[in-house]
Simulated scan of single mutants.
Amino acid sequence: MHNIYELIRELENIQGLSKHEQLVQGIINAINDKVIQRGDMLPSVNNLIKELGFARETIAKGYKELVSRGIVESKNRIGFYVARENTEHNLRIALIIFAFDSFQEVLYKTFRDSLGTPAVIDIFFHHNNIDVLESIIANVRGKYGMYVVAPIPHKKTPEILGALPLNKFLMIDRYLKMDGDFSYIVQEFEKPTYTAFSQLAPAIRKFRGMVHYHRPASDTPIEILGAYKRFVKDFKIKSVIRTEYVPGSIEKGYVYFTINNAELWLMLKDAKAKGFRLGKDVGILSHNDEVVKEIIFDGITTYSTDFAVMAEKAARFVLTREKIQEVVPTVLLRRGSL
């Protein structure tokens, strides 16, 4: 079994972690790993100096922080003791996601509200850039009590995320195969996309064809493109795939499918300007539901996972540490646009 000194030394090479932070997190890790328990005496300042080579002021600062957080108590002329085993009173969580889109905002707010306990959530955006993700992980590892990460589908990602402790790691949004046994709460893309298109086939066939916008270098799941291609082939739907929507190019008689909200708003603006009736003159289908899509233009048809449910389950995992491996269902929400 690890001892306190070993757990503190394990953190010494983490970029950006000061020595006093290393001491604080090492002792917290020792409590969480049951190396020490409530009532146990912690190493003296002199022993820490001898074993770790830390300055006396550094150790005093670390112990002072642990005392202020209620994790450690000081007994005059005796030493420092573990005051409680619940180290999560001021839990720090690193939430690492793609970008702050509207549906990601739902995930964040629901996650924050569902924790129901004092916690600090630092949010980071990797923007589907593997170098940015690698930099974020290098800077946050060892500094947080929990890491909630939406991974990038990239060959380097498993190795990058492997630097995080799996008992404090939760994969959300997209599933990516990694070594080890870890928890995840994710959505599927290919099968739900094909299922949603199949259910909409009778409505789509009322139009001349279908246009899908897919940006190859974007964070759009490639599984969606695969499901779309399979659908139009199986159901013999005339189809065009374009890289981006050109303002003003919407035409009567087609169904338009985009995952990008900025493109969706442009389409709706153009449809209104040209006097097109949604569901009659043109069809609109969007991915990832949100309140505004339920309201505008008598409702936009979407298929989406429930990000609020995903966030609630993520918060429950953070609070209980009970292993979870779950795929949140994706549902079709039919409205006036198709």
Rank of each mutant, 00 (worst) to 15 (best):
I93P: 08
G299W: 07
Q22C: 10
Q25I: 06
V35A: 01
I96C: 00
L264F: 05
K274L: 09
H20D: 12
L319I: 09
H154F: 01
R174C: 14
H126N: 00
K272Q: 10
P118C: 05
V186W: 03
L164G: 02
D179S: 12
K313T: 07
G79K: 00
I137Y: 00
A311W: 08
R77N: 12
Q15H: 11
R9Y: 09
E73W: 04
L264Y: 07
N260Y: 08
N3D: 14
T157F: 00
N13V: 03
N129V: 01
G142S: 11
R316V: 11
E105N: 11
E57V: 08
D181M: 06
R56F: 09
A138E: 14
I36F: 07
Y63D: 06
Y254T: 01
T157R: 06
N32V: 05
I172W: 01
N288Y: 03
S218C: 06
L48M: 15
D179K: 15
F125W: 03
H287E: 04
S286N: 11
P165H: 05
E294Y: 10
I71D: 01
V327S: 06
K156E: 15
K156A: 15
I93F: 06
V24S: 00
E6A: 13
G226Q: 13
D306I: 07
F235Y: 15
E6C: 00
I27Y: 01
R208M: 13
I27R: 00
H89D: 13
Y184N: 01
R84T: 15
V148S: 04
M1T: 14
N90H: 10
R9D: 07
K272G: 10
K252L: 03
F169M: 12
K252V: 02
E51M: 07
Y63K: 02
H20R: 11
V255F: 01
K109C: 05
R277D: 09
I241Y: 10
E263H: 14
S337D: 05
A99G: 07
I185V: 14
K206R: 15
R174M: 08
N129R: 09
I71R: 11
V292D: 09
E65N: 13
E21R: 05
A262G: 07
A60I: 05
F103A: 10
F54L: 11
I78N: 08
L166I: 04
I185A: 10
K280I: 07
K274V: 04
R334L: 14
I284R: 02
G279K: 05
G275C: 04
I204V: 12
E12N: 12
P247G: 09
V140I: 14
E12H: 05
I222M: 14
R174I: 11
N47Y: 09
R277L: 12
